[in-house]
Design a protein around this nucleic acid. Structure first.
Length: 109
DNA sequence: CTCTTGACTGAGG
DNA sequence: GCCTCAGCCAAGA
């Protein structure tokens, strides 16, 4: 495995694991915290590979607070997980997104 | 090796 | 609020 690319994926997993219960963040926020925000798609791809790992990918949403990755969890699994953590989800979108938002570049400093 | 796709984002119309 | 475009880069066909 190449260190350049694989490290990014591992870093993403680590950051996602640090997301507190009942909090959510965005692909772009993680990408921006690690390197360039343009890598937001790679964060999404990292989540694709996070399936089966101990990574709360359901806490990672797009910039609008929508559950874009919900389809990859199978049905409403992602929605249920978020609601069970105290996050209100309506029409595949997180309510009070700004309130639940967890920014690694701020929280982790 | 080339081309397309995609769990994204911000800017512009 | 919706559509389009450009930038980002890995994986699959």
């Amino acid at each position: 495995m190449n260190e350049s690319t694989t490290n990014f994926f591992q870093d993403v997993y680590e950051v996602v694991k640090l997301i507190p219960k009942g909090r959510v963040t965005s692909y772009g926020a993680i990408a921006g915290y690690l390197g360039s925000k343009g890598k937001s798609r790679m964060v999404g791809w990292a989540m694709h590979g996070a399936s089966g790992l101990d990574v709360p990918a359901h806490r990672v949403l797009n910039s609008k607070g929508e559950l874009t990755g919900k389809a990859h969890f199978g049905g409403d699994r992602m929605t249920r997980l978020l609601e069970s953590e105290g996050v209100q989800v309506k029409n595949d979108k997180v309510q009070h997104f700004k309130k639940h938002f967890w920014d690694p570049s701020v929280e982790l400093m």
